[in-house]
Design a binder for these strands. Sequence first.
DNA 1: CGTCCACGTCTAC
DNA 2: TAGACCTGGACGG
Length: 345
Amino acid sequence: MPEGPELHLASCYINTVCAGLIFSGKVEKSEVSKNPEVLFESDAYVISATSRGKEIKLTLTPLKEEKNTLPGRGRDREELSQNGLQQPMDLVFRFGMSGSFKFTSAAELPKHAHLRFYTKESPHRALCFVDCRRFGRWEVHGTWQLDRGPCVMLEYEKFRENVLRNLSDKAFNKPICEALLNQKFFNGIGNYLRAEILYRLKIPPFENARTVLEALQHRKQSPDLTLSKKVKLKQENPDLLELCHAVPMEVIHMGGMGYGPEHSDDAAEWLQCYCVPGMRSLRDGNGRTIWFQGEPGPMAPKGEHQLDSSMLCRVLLLLVGLGEAGRAVVCCGIVKETSDALLKL
DNA sequence: CGTCCACGTCTAC
DNA sequence: TAGACCTGGACGG
């Protein structure tokens, strides 16, 4: 489920279900997970969460009055402070392709629950990090990953500045659709968001990123307009960086994309481009599928494998609709990769 | 049965 | 710039 909006919603979910709840005992890791053990133990602690882009941070805080369990009982001494109390601990998670948090009965843990926090009450319940593909990661005593930029959702002004002040960075030598996945500058944007954002402005995905973004630096002012008209104009014509904030915010207000079993109808309706029938798709330079409408743009990868089904359909319909002479003309003009692809059918 | 595809990083040649 | 890392759903034979 995981691009920026889903990560943020996960933090909201955790803060809601854990509000007023007391957790207890050790943090349990599944056998199969290669992530680090979480050596935290407390008789009574609380859990809270914050998010930043595509990361989420859990804070485990022992309750004050606790005199901790016997030091040394199956515990590393280093994990306890000098007076034997468990210190608060931050855990930073990335979700990979399939991470999520679920709060359930401890008796029936969800499949693929790789990290589990148990409540003190009985019968116990558990907050679980669930991750079927196990691409997700967590770090003990974690901090926000150093080379990830400000959150597109929660730190919009810093995010915008970070992009516009660094347009000389080689990250912007790339097509805009590839730059948008660079978490150093677009922390929170993922594959469906980049497609939806570019589609709103009909920006060709393989237009050069610097070319697109330099145009935002000197946005033309209209001094003759009143302030309210300027505000209105801006709201009705958001630029690319504003959409990098506004589009994920739409998803948050919708309650997330709900990938997987709980696939919501709202989400399916909300998508205007990503995986939508009739839209075109190509592989970008990193092998990721970019969905778009119209022209791919000047930096599109060349090659015989770069013909999408939507375009093939159109070519075939065109050929069917033409007479014999027209067909001959069109076939002569067809680009090499088109004819190659047709021959392969 | 098999092949392809998926919301993302990582690290190794 | 490839692969590696994983499970499971969709779809074809």
